[in-house]
Protein backbone atom coordinates (compact mmCIF):
# COMPACT_ATOMS: atom_id res chain seq x y z
CA UNK A 1 0.00 0.00 0.00
CA UNK A 2 1.60 3.23 -1.11
CA UNK A 3 0.39 6.31 0.64
CA UNK A 4 0.34 8.49 -2.46
CA UNK A 5 -2.00 6.08 -4.22
CA UNK A 6 -4.74 6.59 -1.65
CA UNK A 7 -7.62 8.90 -2.45
CA UNK A 8 -7.62 12.43 -1.11
CA UNK A 9 -10.40 11.96 1.50
CA UNK A 10 -8.64 8.91 2.90
CA UNK A 11 -5.40 10.84 3.16
CA UNK A 12 -7.12 13.75 4.86
CA UNK A 13 -8.76 11.38 7.31
CA UNK A 14 -5.37 9.86 7.98
CA UNK A 15 -3.86 13.24 8.79
CA UNK A 16 -6.85 14.18 10.90
CA UNK A 17 -6.41 11.04 12.95
CA UNK A 18 -2.70 11.70 13.42
CA UNK A 19 -3.32 15.27 14.46
CA UNK A 20 -5.94 14.24 17.02
CA UNK A 21 -3.54 11.64 18.40
CA UNK A 22 -0.70 14.16 18.50
CA UNK A 23 -2.79 16.78 20.28
CA UNK A 24 -4.02 14.37 22.93
CA UNK A 25 -0.49 13.01 23.49
CA UNK A 26 0.91 16.49 23.81
CA UNK A 27 -1.91 17.80 25.93
CA UNK A 28 -0.65 16.94 29.44
CA UNK A 29 2.78 18.40 28.70
CA UNK A 30 1.50 21.54 27.03
CA UNK A 31 -1.10 21.99 29.75
CA UNK A 32 1.67 21.86 32.34
CA UNK A 33 3.84 24.28 30.40
CA UNK A 34 1.25 26.91 29.66
CA UNK A 35 -0.38 26.69 33.07
CA UNK A 36 2.91 27.54 34.71
CA UNK A 37 3.08 30.63 32.55
CA UNK A 38 -0.35 31.88 33.68
CA UNK A 39 -1.07 34.38 36.41
CA UNK A 40 -2.70 33.17 39.60
CA UNK A 41 -6.06 34.77 38.85
CA UNK A 42 -6.21 33.15 35.46
CA UNK A 43 -5.43 29.76 36.94
CA UNK A 44 -8.28 30.19 39.41
CA UNK A 45 -10.75 31.38 36.79
CA UNK A 46 -10.06 28.72 34.18
CA UNK A 47 -7.70 25.97 35.32
CA UNK A 48 -7.51 24.34 31.89
CA UNK A 49 -7.85 27.36 29.63
CA UNK A 50 -5.06 28.94 27.63
CA UNK A 51 -3.24 31.92 29.13
CA UNK A 52 -4.11 35.34 27.78
CA UNK A 53 -0.64 36.68 28.54
CA UNK A 54 2.65 35.09 29.50
CA UNK A 55 3.75 35.64 33.07
CA UNK A 56 6.78 34.22 34.81
CA UNK A 57 5.60 35.09 38.33
CA UNK A 58 4.78 31.50 39.27
CA UNK A 59 7.95 30.11 37.76
CA UNK A 60 10.01 32.64 39.68
CA UNK A 61 8.15 32.01 42.90
CA UNK A 62 8.40 28.23 42.57
CA UNK A 63 12.11 28.58 41.91
CA UNK A 64 12.46 30.65 45.09
CA UNK A 65 10.28 28.69 47.49
CA UNK A 66 11.31 25.30 46.15
CA UNK A 67 14.98 26.28 46.33
CA UNK A 68 15.46 25.08 42.79
CA UNK A 69 18.99 26.44 42.56
CA UNK A 70 20.00 23.83 45.09
CA UNK A 71 17.84 21.08 43.59
CA UNK A 72 19.31 21.68 40.14
CA UNK A 73 22.84 21.75 41.54
CA UNK A 74 22.32 18.47 43.41
CA UNK A 75 20.69 16.73 40.45
CA UNK A 76 23.34 17.98 38.03
CA UNK A 77 26.17 16.91 40.31
CA UNK A 78 24.81 13.39 40.71
CA UNK A 79 23.84 12.94 37.07
CA UNK A 80 27.04 14.36 35.58
CA UNK A 81 29.50 12.55 37.87
CA UNK A 82 27.60 9.26 37.51
CA UNK A 83 27.42 9.53 33.72
CA UNK A 84 31.10 10.45 33.34
CA UNK A 85 32.03 7.57 35.63
CA UNK A 86 29.80 5.03 33.96
CA UNK A 87 30.90 6.00 30.45
CA UNK A 88 34.59 5.81 31.39
CA UNK A 89 34.19 2.44 33.04
CA UNK A 90 32.02 1.04 30.26
CA UNK A 91 34.19 2.26 27.40
CA UNK A 92 37.36 0.74 28.83
CA UNK A 93 35.57 -2.48 29.76
CA UNK A 94 33.87 -2.69 26.36
CA UNK A 95 37.24 -2.25 24.68
CA UNK A 96 38.82 -4.94 26.81
CA UNK A 97 35.97 -7.32 26.04
CA UNK A 98 35.82 -6.50 22.34
CA UNK A 99 39.49 -6.68 21.52
CA UNK A 100 41.50 -8.73 24.01
CA UNK A 101 41.35 -12.44 23.88
CA UNK A 102 42.08 -13.00 27.56
CA UNK A 103 41.17 -16.12 29.47
CA UNK A 104 37.54 -16.17 30.37
CA UNK A 105 36.51 -13.25 28.16
CA UNK A 106 33.39 -14.88 26.81
CA UNK A 107 32.38 -16.37 30.14
CA UNK A 108 32.86 -13.06 31.94
CA UNK A 109 30.84 -11.20 29.36
CA UNK A 110 27.94 -13.62 29.63
CA UNK A 111 28.20 -13.72 33.38
CA UNK A 112 28.07 -9.98 33.71
CA UNK A 113 25.26 -9.73 31.24
CA UNK A 114 23.35 -11.07 34.18
CA UNK A 115 23.97 -7.65 35.69
CA UNK A 116 21.41 -6.33 33.23
CA UNK A 117 18.82 -8.65 34.63
CA UNK A 118 19.20 -7.58 38.24
CA UNK A 119 16.26 -5.36 39.10
CA UNK A 120 18.03 -2.62 40.98
CA UNK A 121 15.10 -2.28 43.36
CA UNK A 122 15.92 -5.73 44.68
CA UNK A 123 19.15 -4.24 46.01
CA UNK A 124 17.75 -1.44 48.10
CA UNK A 125 18.19 -3.07 51.48
CA UNK A 126 21.74 -4.43 51.15
CA UNK A 127 22.98 -1.34 49.27
CA UNK A 128 21.65 0.91 51.98
CA UNK A 129 23.40 -1.25 54.56
CA UNK A 130 26.60 -1.44 52.53
CA UNK A 131 26.87 2.34 52.40
CA UNK A 132 26.50 2.51 56.18
CA UNK A 133 29.31 -0.01 56.60
CA UNK A 134 31.60 1.73 54.10
CA UNK A 135 30.82 5.00 55.83
CA UNK A 136 31.89 3.66 59.21
CA UNK A 137 35.10 2.26 57.69
CA UNK A 138 35.86 5.60 56.08
CA UNK A 139 35.24 7.34 59.38
CA UNK A 140 37.52 4.89 61.23
CA UNK A 141 40.28 5.58 58.73
CA UNK A 142 39.62 9.35 58.96
CA UNK A 143 38.90 9.52 55.25
CA UNK A 144 36.85 12.55 54.22
CA UNK A 145 34.36 10.52 52.18
CA UNK A 146 31.02 10.36 53.95
CA UNK A 147 28.64 7.82 52.43
CA UNK A 148 25.63 8.24 54.67
CA UNK A 149 23.49 11.11 53.52
CA UNK A 150 25.89 11.79 50.73
CA UNK A 151 25.48 12.13 46.96
CA UNK A 152 28.49 9.84 46.68
CA UNK A 153 26.34 6.90 47.79
CA UNK A 154 23.91 7.54 44.93
CA UNK A 155 26.75 8.03 42.46
CA UNK A 156 28.52 4.79 43.42
CA UNK A 157 25.29 2.84 43.12
CA UNK A 158 24.51 4.34 39.70
CA UNK A 159 28.03 3.65 38.49
CA UNK A 160 27.57 -0.08 39.00
CA UNK A 161 24.75 -0.16 36.44
CA UNK A 162 27.09 -0.24 33.46
CA UNK A 163 25.92 -3.46 31.79
CA UNK A 164 23.72 -1.75 29.19
CA UNK A 165 26.46 0.69 28.17
CA UNK A 166 29.03 -2.11 27.97
CA UNK A 167 26.89 -4.26 25.70
CA UNK A 168 26.04 -1.30 23.52
CA UNK A 169 29.56 0.11 23.18
CA UNK A 170 31.15 -3.33 22.86
CA UNK A 171 28.89 -4.13 19.91
CA UNK A 172 29.96 -0.87 18.30
CA UNK A 173 33.67 -1.53 18.90
CA UNK A 174 33.31 -4.95 17.33
CA UNK A 175 31.97 -3.40 14.14
CA UNK A 176 35.12 -1.24 13.76
CA UNK A 177 37.77 -2.88 11.56
CA UNK A 178 40.85 -3.79 13.63
CA UNK A 179 43.27 -2.56 10.96
CA UNK A 180 42.99 0.97 12.33
CA UNK A 181 44.35 -0.10 15.70
CA UNK A 182 47.10 -2.10 14.07
CA UNK A 183 48.20 0.97 12.16
CA UNK A 184 48.36 2.92 15.39
CA UNK A 185 50.28 0.11 17.05
CA UNK A 186 52.84 0.06 14.28
CA UNK A 187 53.24 3.78 14.83
CA UNK A 188 54.12 3.00 18.43
CA UNK A 189 50.89 3.95 20.18
CA UNK A 190 50.28 2.34 23.55
CA UNK A 191 47.11 0.48 24.35
CA UNK A 192 45.45 3.24 26.36
CA UNK A 193 46.39 5.80 23.71
CA UNK A 194 44.78 3.63 21.06
CA UNK A 195 41.59 3.49 23.05
CA UNK A 196 41.66 7.20 23.75
CA UNK A 197 42.73 8.54 20.34
CA UNK A 198 41.53 5.92 17.88
CA UNK A 199 38.63 3.95 19.27
CA UNK A 200 36.77 6.52 21.36
CA UNK A 201 36.51 9.04 18.50
CA UNK A 202 35.27 6.30 16.19
CA UNK A 203 32.72 5.03 18.69
CA UNK A 204 31.44 8.51 19.52
CA UNK A 205 27.90 7.85 18.18
CA UNK A 206 27.46 4.91 20.56
CA UNK A 207 29.07 6.74 23.47
CA UNK A 208 26.96 9.84 22.92
CA UNK A 209 23.77 7.77 22.77
CA UNK A 210 24.59 6.09 26.06
CA UNK A 211 25.50 9.43 27.64
CA UNK A 212 22.09 10.86 26.82
CA UNK A 213 20.28 7.72 27.92
CA UNK A 214 21.93 7.49 31.28
CA UNK A 215 21.75 11.22 31.92
CA UNK A 216 18.00 11.37 31.43
CA UNK A 217 17.57 8.18 33.44
CA UNK A 218 19.58 9.45 36.41
CA UNK A 219 17.93 12.85 36.19
CA UNK A 220 14.50 11.26 36.54
CA UNK A 221 15.38 8.55 39.04
CA UNK A 222 13.54 8.82 42.31
CA UNK A 223 14.09 5.65 44.34
CA UNK A 224 17.82 5.86 45.06
CA UNK A 225 17.97 9.48 46.18
CA UNK A 226 14.94 8.62 48.33
CA UNK A 227 16.82 5.77 49.97
CA UNK A 228 20.16 7.51 50.49
CA UNK A 229 19.50 11.23 50.94
CA UNK A 230 17.64 12.28 54.05
CA UNK A 231 18.78 15.89 54.43
CA UNK A 232 16.75 18.54 52.68
CA UNK A 233 19.91 20.28 51.48
CA UNK A 234 20.82 17.16 49.48
CA UNK A 235 17.52 16.68 47.68
CA UNK A 236 17.52 16.08 43.95
CA UNK A 237 14.78 17.47 41.71
CA UNK A 238 12.44 14.44 41.99
CA UNK A 239 12.74 14.46 45.79
CA UNK A 240 12.33 18.22 45.94
CA UNK A 241 9.25 18.04 43.75
CA UNK A 242 7.68 15.42 45.98
CA UNK A 243 8.11 17.56 49.08
CA UNK A 244 7.07 20.70 47.26
CA UNK A 245 3.86 19.12 46.01
CA UNK A 246 3.05 17.90 49.50
CA UNK A 247 3.63 21.29 51.05
CA UNK A 248 1.72 23.59 48.70
CA UNK A 249 -1.30 21.45 47.99
CA UNK A 250 -3.65 24.38 47.80
CA UNK A 251 -1.40 26.47 45.56
CA UNK A 252 -2.21 24.82 42.28
CA UNK A 253 -0.43 27.33 40.05
CA UNK A 254 2.76 27.20 42.10
CA UNK A 255 2.72 23.40 42.04
CA UNK A 256 2.41 23.24 38.28
CA UNK A 257 5.20 25.78 37.87
CA UNK A 258 7.48 23.53 39.94
CA UNK A 259 6.57 20.56 37.75
CA UNK A 260 7.56 22.51 34.67
CA UNK A 261 10.89 23.37 36.21
CA UNK A 262 11.50 19.65 36.69
CA UNK A 263 10.21 18.45 33.33
CA UNK A 264 11.66 21.06 30.99
CA UNK A 265 15.29 19.89 31.06
CA UNK A 266 14.49 16.33 29.85
CA UNK A 267 12.10 17.76 27.23
CA UNK A 268 14.85 20.08 26.06
CA UNK A 269 17.36 17.23 25.88
CA UNK A 270 14.88 15.15 23.94
CA UNK A 271 14.10 17.90 21.44
CA UNK A 272 17.83 18.38 20.87
CA UNK A 273 18.75 14.72 20.55
CA UNK A 274 15.56 12.88 19.58
CA UNK A 275 17.04 11.31 16.45
CA UNK A 276 19.95 9.85 18.36
CA UNK A 277 17.74 8.69 21.23
CA UNK A 278 15.38 6.87 18.89
CA UNK A 279 18.19 5.33 16.89
CA UNK A 280 19.83 4.15 20.10
CA UNK A 281 16.57 2.65 21.26
CA UNK A 282 16.06 0.63 18.11
CA UNK A 283 19.69 -0.44 17.80
CA UNK A 284 19.65 -1.54 21.39
CA UNK A 285 16.47 -3.52 20.84
CA UNK A 286 17.69 -5.18 17.69
CA UNK A 287 21.07 -6.09 19.03
CA UNK A 288 20.14 -7.99 22.15
Amino acid sequence: MVFRELSLPVRLLFYLFLIVAAVSILYPLTWMSYTSLKTNEEVMLSPFGLPTRVSFENIAEAWQTGNFTRLYANSLLIAIVSVVGIITISTTAAYGLARYHFNGNRALFLYFLVGMAVPTQALMVPSFKLMAILDSWAAALHLPVPLLNSPLAVILTYMSWSSLAIIFIRAYFMSIPPELEDAARVDGARELQILRHVMVPLAMPAIATMTIFYFVFFWNDFLWPLIYLHKHTLRTIPLGIMHFEGKYVSLWSLQVAALSLAAWPPIFIYVLFHRRIQRGLTEGALKF
Binding site: T88, I89, S90, T92, A93, Y95, G96, L97, Y100, H101, F102, N103, N105, L108, F112, G115, V118, A122, L123, V125, P126, S127, K129, L130, L156, T157, M159, S160, W161, S162, I166, E191, L195
Partner: peptide, 30 residues
Protein backbone atom coordinates in the same frame (compact mmCIF):
# COMPACT_ATOMS: atom_id res chain seq x y z
CA UNK B 1 46.36 -10.34 26.10
CA UNK B 2 45.46 -11.31 29.62
CA UNK B 3 47.18 -8.36 31.23
CA UNK B 4 45.60 -5.69 29.04
CA UNK B 5 42.26 -7.44 28.97
CA UNK B 6 42.05 -7.66 32.73
CA UNK B 7 43.37 -4.12 33.20
CA UNK B 8 40.71 -2.69 30.95
CA UNK B 9 37.84 -4.52 32.55
CA UNK B 10 39.00 -4.20 36.16
CA UNK B 11 37.17 -0.94 37.07
CA UNK B 12 33.94 -2.43 35.82
CA UNK B 13 34.44 -5.71 37.68
CA UNK B 14 35.32 -3.85 40.87
CA UNK B 15 32.18 -1.70 40.75
CA UNK B 16 30.05 -4.62 39.73
CA UNK B 17 31.23 -6.88 42.52
CA UNK B 18 31.05 -4.19 45.20
CA UNK B 19 27.78 -2.51 44.40
CA UNK B 20 25.77 -5.08 42.52
CA UNK B 21 26.84 -8.68 43.02
CA UNK B 22 27.97 -8.03 46.60
CA UNK B 23 24.70 -6.56 47.82
CA UNK B 24 22.82 -9.32 46.03
CA UNK B 25 24.78 -11.93 47.96
CA UNK B 26 24.38 -10.05 51.23
CA UNK B 27 20.63 -10.08 50.81
CA UNK B 28 20.84 -13.80 50.13
CA UNK B 29 22.14 -14.17 53.68
CA UNK B 30 19.70 -11.64 55.12
Amino acid sequence: ENLYGYLFISPWILGFVMFLAGPLLVSLGL
